[in-house]
Design a protein around this nucleic acid. Structure first.
Lengths: 188, 188
DNA sequence: CATTTACTATACCGATCGGTATATTTGTTC
DNA sequence: GAACAAATATACCGATCGGTATAGTAAATG
C-alpha cells in the first residue's frame, strides 16, 4: 500500500471525524502506521497535507463543474446538469464533502477556511459566469449573477447536507426539486 | 467591568474568529485582561466556558422560538413569524450566530458539535411539533414533520448565512421569499 | 475586629502540539 | 558492486496545550 495515498486517506477520515485542529499529526501517522518523517517527507507540514488533500478532490469537482457550467441557451437544462454534477460528486465522496462543508462554514480566520477559500471562489466564479451568459437571454437577472451563484450553490449544499445528515435520497426527484426551488426564488 | 461577562464576550469573539480548538485558554485570558484561575473559577474548564456561552444565547433563541412556534390554524402566518424570529435573533447576535452555525456544521465528533447538538435538537423539535399540529389541517404533510422541520430551518439558515457572508438584507421581502421558497417545496 | 467567602495573581504541572536533526534502509542507475 | 537519491526510523526539539496548587487580596458578615 502506498504510504502517501494512505496518509491522505487517513487524514481525510480524521479531519472529517474530529476536525482539522483536533486531529494531531501524531494521531494521523499512528493510524496510518507510518512515522512523522514519512509524513513530513511527502507533505512538508500539516497544512501541506491539508492542501494536498483539498487539491486531490477539488480538482475533480472543479473540472466536472467546468463542464457542467457551459451554457447553451437552455438555463433549466444547465441548472439541472450542474445540480446532478454536484449531487453525484457528493455521493461518490461523502467523507470529503462532509469535511469540505465543515471547513467552508468554519471561522473565517481558521486555517481550513483559508485553505478552502480559493477553491470555493473558483466554483462560485464558474456558476457566476454561467448566470452572466444566461442573463443575455433573461433580462430580469442582469447584474445578479453573484447572488444567484451564491444562492444556487447554497440550495445545492442544503440538499447535500440533508443527504449527509438526514438521509434523504439525492435522486432525480431531488434534482428537480432543488432546481425548481431555486428557479422559484429567481423568477418571482 | 464584570470579569465573568467579559470573559464570555471575549471567548465568543475568539471562538468565532479562530474556532474553538484554535483559540487557546491563554489567549482568551490575556485578551480579557484576567488570569487563568479567574477563568477556571467561573467556568471550571474550557468546555465549561463553551457551555456557558452556548446556554447564554441558546436560552434566548429557544424561548423566542417556543413562542413563535405556537400553531393557531394559519400555517403561512406561523412560518412567517418563526422566520422573523430567527432573522431578528441573527441580526441582534451576528457573532454568536456565526459561531453557532460553524459549530453546527463542524465534525460530528468535535466538542463544539457535541456541545451544540442538544440545543439544535430542541429547536428542531419545536418546529417539528408545529408541523405536527399543522398536519391535522394539511393532510398531505402527514409523517413528514421531521423533514419539514429540517428543511425549513435549513432554508432559514441559508438566508442568515447569505446575510452574514454576502450582505443581503434580512427584511420583510427576505422573510416572504424564504417562507414561499419553503412552501413551494412542500406543496408541490 | 475576626472570620468567612468570593475572587485573583504567581508559578507551576504533565501532556501534547507541530516540526526536525541524524542515521539507516531501500531501490535505482552507472 | 559502487554511488546516489528517495524513503523511513529513532530520538529529540522548544512551544503551547488545558489545567492547578498555593497564596494572597477584597469585600461582606458575624
Amino acid at each position: 500500500m502506498d504510504n502517501q495515498e494512505n496518509i491522505l486517506n487517513i487524514a481525510l477520515n480524521l479531519f472529517t471525524l474530529k476536525g482539522y485542529e483536533a486531529a494531531g499529526v501524531q494521531e494521523i501517522v499512528e493510524t496510518a502506521n507510518v512515522t512523522k518523517p514519512t509524513l513530513y517527507h511527502y507533505f512538508g507540514s500539516k497544512r501541506g497535507l491539508l492542501d494536498a488533500l483539498l487539491k486531490k478532490y477539488f480538482d475533480v469537482i472543479t473540472k466536472k463543474a467546468e463542464e457542467a457550467c457551459t451554457y447553451s441557451g437552455d438555463l433549466p437544462f444547465t441548472l439541472t446538469r450542474v445540480t446532478e454534477t454536484f449531487f453525484n460528486f457528493a455521493k461518490k465522496n461523502e467523507t470529503f464533502y462532509r469535511m469540505q462543508m465543515a471547513m467552508c462554514f468554519s471561522s473565517t480566520g481558521s486555517e481550513p477556511f483559508i485553505a478552502t477559500k480559493d477553491y470555493n471562489i473558483k466554483l462560485l466564479a464558474l456558476l457566476e459566469k454561467m448566470f452572466l451568459l444566461a442573463s443575455e437571454d433573461h433580462g430580469n437577472m442582469k447584474n445578479r449573477q453573484k447572488r444567484y451563484a451564491f444562492t444556487f450553490l447554497g440550495i445545492i449544499n442544503s440538499y447535500i447536507s440533508l443527504y449527509l445528515n438526514s438521509g434523504i435520497k439525492l435522486n432525480d426527484e431531488a434534482v428537480y426539486s432543488a432546481v425548481h426551488q431555486f428557479s422559484h426564488g429567481i423568477y418571482s
